[in-house]
Simulated scan of single mutants.
Amino acid sequence: MRGYVQVYTGNGKGKTTAALGLALRAVGGGKKVFFAQFVKGCTYSEHEPIARFFPEIILRQYGLKCFIVEEASQEDIDAARNGLEEVTVVLSSGDYDVVVLDEACIAVHFNLFSSEELIRAVQSREKHTEVIVTGRYATPDLIEIADLVTEMKEVKHYYTQGLIGRRGIEF
């Protein structure tokens, strides 16, 4: 069976959540999942239940902080590049049925690695491996090679009212 490339992008909430839902569905279908989180270095609410209940999901983070607000440091760049190298090996190994590259579009946006490097990694995958790439600012060349692109559009968000993220809901 052929694996496809899915991209979840846009300025609306739900990209990582959708990828987590797909990972859960994949496990339910007997599949192994590698979930790579770029840019993210903090603990998120999904980490503990994945570690406790889902040994079929391997989760790795390739970020140093919760998020890059201004300019990326060399350490941010190194962490992301090392992650992309590891993920490229994972993609080409055929050991995983689903590989999620969470916030990879943001990593490209902050110049941690290029869109061309990301696409080369995605295209190095084994034929059966499904790849999900998330993050705002998906590049036109990534959209072009994708088989499915979903844009999350913000219509209304409580952040605009000054509310901050809540554990278990936004992170």
Score class of each variant (00 low, 15 high):
residue 3 G to A: 05
residue 5 V to E: 00
residue 8 Y to N: 10
residue 9 T to N: 03
residue 9 T to D: 08
residue 10 G to E: 00
residue 13 K to Y: 12
residue 14 G to D: 14
residue 16 T to L: 01
residue 18 A to M: 02
residue 21 G to W: 06
residue 23 A to I: 03
residue 28 G to A: 14
residue 30 G to C: 08
residue 30 G to R: 09
residue 30 G to M: 09
residue 30 G to V: 10
residue 31 K to F: 13
residue 31 K to A: 12
residue 32 K to E: 12
residue 32 K to N: 13
residue 33 V to S: 07
residue 33 V to F: 06
residue 34 F to P: 10
residue 34 F to Q: 08
residue 35 F to I: 07
residue 36 A to K: 03
residue 36 A to W: 08
residue 37 Q to Y: 08
residue 37 Q to E: 12
residue 38 F to D: 04
residue 39 V to P: 03
residue 41 G to C: 09
residue 41 G to W: 08
residue 41 G to Y: 10
residue 42 C to F: 10
residue 43 T to H: 10
residue 45 S to V: 01
residue 46 E to R: 10
residue 47 H to W: 03
residue 47 H to P: 01
residue 48 E to P: 07
residue 48 E to Y: 08
residue 49 P to T: 14
residue 50 I to C: 02
residue 55 P to A: 04
residue 55 P to I: 07
residue 55 P to G: 01
residue 55 P to F: 05
residue 56 E to A: 15
residue 58 I to M: 04
residue 59 L to N: 11
residue 59 L to W: 01
residue 61 Q to G: 12
residue 61 Q to S: 14
residue 63 G to H: 07
residue 65 K to N: 13
residue 65 K to E: 13
residue 66 C to L: 05
residue 71 E to L: 00
residue 73 S to R: 09
residue 79 A to C: 08
residue 80 A to T: 11
residue 81 R to F: 09
residue 81 R to T: 12
residue 85 E to C: 07
residue 85 E to Q: 12
residue 89 V to A: 15
residue 91 L to Y: 12
residue 91 L to M: 11
residue 92 S to A: 15
residue 92 S to M: 00
residue 92 S to F: 01
residue 92 S to R: 14
residue 93 S to F: 07
residue 94 G to Y: 14
residue 94 G to N: 15
residue 95 D to G: 01
residue 96 Y to Q: 04
residue 97 D to R: 05
residue 97 D to W: 03
residue 97 D to Q: 15
residue 99 V to F: 02
residue 100 V to D: 11
residue 101 L to N: 05
residue 104 A to V: 07
residue 105 C to Q: 08
residue 106 I to V: 13
residue 106 I to Q: 01
residue 107 A to H: 11
residue 107 A to P: 06
residue 107 A to E: 04
residue 108 V to D: 14
residue 108 V to M: 04
residue 108 V to C: 13
residue 109 H to A: 11
residue 109 H to Q: 12
residue 109 H to P: 00
residue 109 H to R: 08
residue 109 H to D: 11
residue 111 N to G: 03
residue 113 F to C: 06
residue 115 S to C: 13
residue 116 E to S: 14
residue 120 R to L: 05
residue 120 R to A: 13
residue 121 A to T: 00
residue 122 V to N: 04
residue 122 V to L: 00
residue 123 Q to I: 04
residue 125 R to C: 01
residue 125 R to H: 06
residue 126 E to Y: 00
residue 126 E to D: 14
residue 127 K to N: 12
residue 127 K to H: 15
residue 128 H to G: 10
residue 129 T to Q: 07
residue 129 T to L: 01
residue 130 E to W: 03
residue 132 I to E: 01
residue 138 A to Y: 03
residue 139 T to A: 05
residue 140 P to E: 15
residue 141 D to L: 05
residue 141 D to W: 03
residue 143 I to G: 01
residue 143 I to L: 08
residue 144 E to G: 03
residue 144 E to R: 13
residue 145 I to Y: 11
residue 145 I to H: 09
residue 146 A to H: 00
residue 149 V to W: 02
residue 150 T to C: 06
residue 151 E to K: 08
residue 152 M to S: 09
residue 152 M to G: 02
residue 152 M to W: 01
residue 153 K to E: 13
residue 153 K to F: 04
residue 155 V to R: 12
residue 155 V to M: 11
residue 155 V to C: 10
residue 156 K to P: 02
residue 158 Y to H: 15
residue 159 Y to S: 03
residue 161 Q to I: 02
residue 161 Q to G: 09
residue 162 G to A: 08
residue 164 I to L: 14
residue 164 I to V: 11
residue 165 G to S: 15
residue 165 G to K: 06
residue 165 G to R: 07
residue 168 G to L: 02
residue 169 I to E: 11
residue 171 F to N: 13
